[in-house]
Design a protein around this nucleic acid. Structure first.
Lengths: 185, 185
DNA sequence: GAACGCCTTGGACGACTGTCCAACACACTA
DNA sequence: TAGTGTGTTGGACAGTCGTCCAAGGCGTTC
């Protein structure tokens, strides 16, 4: 059996802690304890706790966005794609770890320029992928704008679902379809 | 001149602090100092700092949503209303105090049930107002669903704009119009 | 075997935290 | 004038925080 490097274990321990305690609630000792190492080791591998959290967080969001973009690519039809997106929304009720992590990162990014830059790149890339997907499937309008609204709506829906679990994603499919269909013939 | 009651001053001091330091970063002494009172006074008027923040925050969000609903009511045409909404979005680049406060509250609500209930009520009420507005202006589809997507998209756009200031709200008007026009004849 | 670099340990440091409370100020009623 | 109640003060309390660092464990190289 190969031992997991300490640095890796710190990153893995940080992610669930951001979700449980919130960005500002994660302490050096918490991460160290969950990773099973001494407290001092955090500052050996990372310049600060914030640095560790930012790296651990964006690692996950990058993976999430890539998976999502990959799933979208598997759908040849605009309607199928949107319906798949709505089904995917069902997996993120807003109170699950992934949704909470993303929300924590968005918020922390407003205060940490370096984190904001990383997230901006990831989200911007995702928007570009969606826009390209729209164009390839026959969208002839302002695909960039539609992609931006679509991406923002997805995040917003997850956020609102966290407040109100009664908000049924399936019912939202029709309006989202209308959004995507605009500009096609 | 009438003196502002201490309780009121604490609430007023708490709001900008949530924005500056983040929900978890606001301390008893911070609020007291900014309000110009002794630290102990916080626990005389509120059962905890969290309680103070929740009350101060929802007071502001309630006012914001009411103003927004009122502004929407002034527009007789669906198109005019959406264009007004987009213009309104320009006032919330995501890094302004109001946007940040709302984001902080959304996130804190995932961990504080009582706050979640209050926010859920406010946002639910707002969705209902938008849905009614849609129906009165001739929307014959699932106005509740459209209102939900519209409200979520607004929040999502603010969030994304915080990451990427280059995201131009004006360009998003067309897709949002398509969203609202679905179901009208 | 000695010397080296990488990694880890566990505690020291000063600063800050939320909460609580005895003491006190002031306006009001009896 | 004495008494009561509301509001305020500033510090005590036990705890946690991020960061740093002397000390030591190892595997590799000379």
């Amino acid at each position: 059996m190969t031992a997991v490097p300490t640095r890796r274990r710190l990153l893995d321990a940080a992610v669930p802690l951001i979700v449980e305690a919130g960005w500002g609630g994660v302490s050096t000792r918490m991460v160290a304890e969950r990773a099973g190492v001494a407290p001092g080791v955090v500052h050996y591998h990372f310049s600060s706790v914030t640095d560790l959290l930012a790296e651990a967080g964006t690692e996950v969001t990058g993976r999430l966005l890539e998976e999502f973009a990959g799933g979208l690519a598997r759908h040849a039809d605009l309607g199928d794609g949107v319906r798949w997106m709505v089904a995917e929304l069902g997996r993120y009720p807003g109170t699950d770890p992934a949704s909470l992590l993303v929300a924590e990162l968005y918020l922390a990014a407003t205060r940490i320029p370096e984190l904001r830059e990383r997230l901006r790149g990831q989200v911007g890339g995702f928007r570009a992928v969606v826009a390209a997907w729209l164009r390839e499937r026959g969208h002839e309008g302002d695909a960039d704008a539609v992609a931006a609204v679509l991406a923002a709506a997805m995040d917003g829906i997850v956020l609102h679902r966290a407040l109100d679990p009664a908000l049924d994603p399936d019912r939202l499919a029709a309006p989202l379809l209308a959004l995507v269909r605009e500009g096609t013939r």
